[in-house]
Design a protein around this nucleic acid. Sequence first.
DNA 1: AAAAAAG
Length: 596
Amino acid sequence: MTRNGVFPESTWKPTRPTRPRYLPPHLRPQNDNAGFLDNVTLTPELTRSRFNSHQPARSTRGRGRGRGPRFAGRRNPNWEDEKFDELEVIDDALEGTNETNNNLEAYEDIPVQASGDNIPPPVATFAEIGLGDGLKKNIRRCNYVKPTPIQRYAIPIAVAGRDLMACAQTGSGKTAAFCFPIISGVLKDPSLVSGRRGGGGGGGSAAVACPLALILAPTRELSCQLRSLEKGVDILVATPGRLVDMIERARVSLGMLKYLALDEADRMLDMGFEPQIRKIVEQMDMPPPGTRQTMLFSATFPDDIQRLASDFLSDYIFLAVGRVGSSTDLIVQRVELVQEMDKRSHLLDLLRSQRSNATPHSKHALTLVFVETKRGANELEHWLSRNGFPAIAMHGDKVQMEREQALRSFKSGATPILVATDVASRGLDIPHVAHVINFDMPKNIDDYVHRIGRTGRAGKCGLATAFFSDKNMPLAKSLTELMKESNQEVPSWLVQHAENHSAGGWVRHGGPDFGGYDFRKGTASSSNYNDTYAVPAIDGYHAAASVNAQPFLSSGNFYSDPSVKTGNVDYLYTDAAAAPYEYAYGYGSVIASGWD
DNA sequence: AAAAAAG
């Protein structure tokens, strides 16, 4: 199936064709991506970064677990004991993850700006944050040696209980930045000790889950599948539509909620989603702003969306790490002028050249191709497959199981090309995506930023190629600006078009030069948001080792029930007792975003 | 006009 040279069968193939076995992140083949950019002009920054990379150290996964199977398949009814055990079990499950990342120091020289009242100062280490001993140990076990910049600034703010609107580049660690404080807060919550379990109430009436924390995400992939609510749930990860349904059917109550987080917040508040979010946040039983803690994270944050979002927040801090909506310097961006008619043959040429330039380092490299329509995704999938490039399509018309299957097939390398619609544009954290091809360009620059952000993650470099056609001229100006911001070579024809189209050009928020932009600063009535600081760079940040958040999230504290095939309300149990069991037997939760 | 997300 994979005799294309990019991905030799001899080196890596799934153990079972029908259902590739889940491979724990720390056991996955390591690939530092060096080499796949061989035929690409590198900027000085990238060249430096590349050669700073080094082979990851591997540690063996040590002792077997004593505790996991004890709770296999059943929850310990004694919550206090469970809670106590959980810390050790999570701890144990995380042992052995030791992936060393390459270029996290590349995030060092980026501007940080915060605005709002009484901003808690940043920290330099995880250790000095009051996250609790159990979580701290887990973080250490994950080899999160030092927090990334967004984590350094956001975690203290979150731990202080403050509302937060945060922007940081794709792949820079946003998910952990809000998950750690939430997990920490939930673990410390007195209601857990006193035995609060949502709906434990008997009497035959349907149980109601009363989560303490709710994390909303725009696609199902950003959540994981799970089972019955009756067991109670402390942290609920959900897509909006299904959650509305569950609340209306009184399976979930948000009355106890203390933490609300919106991942990909700008997407969650755009036209498509805003009504549902408003319904959940304002028209259900959720405690109002000020009595709950609300945190919004995204790589992009247009100010009309900030304005909407401020309805959900109380005395919040705006935090921008890096230029708002910018792409990272770790991604080499190329733009090619290609007419619609020629796109397919151009893609084939590109893939052939990629194949013939493959090096031992790039043999695990995956390519993610974005198209505009679901139909286009299917057609390109077949066309590529017919032409010797095993590809698989993913889009919203596929049922969840097909989508997961496609992702697995892609991740395993069985089909090293994924053709996807925007369902895959945000948040997905897929290791080894070396190349993102925008076969069809998105309509706005923010979507472009999120799409190319599927590569160049966690300090690794990546390549992004855009097929720019006449149709895309309206994008010329913002694309040119974005590329200049990230020190990319901009082809002269694109600059030319950018100038021609400057009149109607879509001007990006934040501006071309420094820092983040708090929309409150642009309004007349914003006088009390004066506690602003700007930090030009972060001193002494040397992330010698880190892993993306995936191992943390998927190997210990997510409990996933693989028998549930539909539905998209997902639960992150703080009770991890059952998780190692699932984990040990090869079921993996399909946690897609551990990092953004 | 298209994607995503409810059944």
